[in-house]
Simulated assay, not measured.
Amino acid sequence: MTTKISFQDVVKTFPLKDTAFVALDHVSLDIADREFVTVVGPSGCGKSTLMSMAAGLVAPTEGQVLVDGAPVTGPGPDRGVIFQQYALFPWLTVRHNVEFGLKLAALPAAERKRRTDHAIDLVGLGDFADALPKTLSGGMKQRCAIARAYAVNPQVLLMDEPFGALDALSRVQLQDQLLGTWRQEQRTVLFITHDVDEAVYLASRVVVMAARPGRVHQVLKVDLPYPRTEEIRLSAEFRQIRNEVWHSVYHQPQAASAA
Rank of each mutant, 00 (worst) to 15 (best):
residue 4 K to L: 06
residue 4 K to R: 15
residue 7 F to D: 02
residue 10 V to C: 12
residue 10 V to D: 04
residue 16 L to M: 04
residue 19 T to W: 15
residue 20 A to D: 11
residue 21 F to W: 00
residue 22 V to F: 00
residue 23 A to C: 09
residue 25 D to I: 01
residue 36 F to L: 14
residue 38 T to P: 09
residue 39 V to I: 15
residue 40 V to Q: 08
residue 44 G to H: 04
residue 50 L to R: 04
residue 51 M to A: 02
residue 53 M to V: 11
residue 54 A to V: 13
residue 55 A to E: 06
residue 56 G to A: 03
residue 59 A to V: 11
residue 66 L to K: 04
residue 69 G to Y: 10
residue 72 V to H: 03
residue 77 P to I: 10
residue 78 D to R: 03
residue 80 G to W: 03
residue 81 V to W: 01
residue 85 Q to P: 05
residue 93 T to Q: 05
residue 97 N to K: 14
residue 107 L to Y: 04
residue 110 A to W: 08
residue 111 E to M: 11
residue 117 D to H: 06
residue 118 H to Y: 15
residue 123 V to R: 04
residue 123 V to F: 15
residue 125 L to A: 07
residue 125 L to V: 13
residue 126 G to L: 05
residue 130 D to I: 03
residue 131 A to W: 05
residue 137 S to Q: 06
residue 139 G to P: 03
residue 140 M to Y: 03
residue 149 A to G: 08
residue 150 Y to M: 15
residue 151 A to N: 13
residue 152 V to L: 12
residue 153 N to H: 08
residue 158 L to Y: 09
residue 162 P to H: 04
residue 164 G to R: 10
residue 164 G to S: 10
residue 167 D to L: 12
residue 170 S to F: 07
residue 170 S to R: 11
residue 177 Q to P: 00
residue 177 Q to E: 15
residue 177 Q to A: 11
residue 180 G to N: 08
residue 181 T to L: 14
residue 185 E to K: 02
residue 193 T to S: 09
residue 193 T to M: 12
residue 194 H to N: 11
residue 194 H to C: 12
residue 195 D to M: 07
residue 197 D to I: 08
residue 201 Y to M: 14
residue 202 L to H: 00
residue 203 A to M: 09
residue 203 A to W: 05
residue 209 M to Q: 03
residue 212 R to T: 00
residue 212 R to A: 02
residue 216 V to M: 14
residue 216 V to A: 05
residue 220 L to W: 00
residue 222 V to L: 07
residue 222 V to F: 07
residue 223 D to Q: 06
residue 224 L to M: 03
residue 225 P to I: 01
residue 228 R to V: 05
residue 229 T to Y: 09
residue 234 L to G: 05
residue 235 S to H: 13
residue 237 E to Y: 01
residue 239 R to F: 13
residue 244 E to I: 10
residue 247 H to T: 11
residue 249 V to A: 01
residue 259 A to S: 02
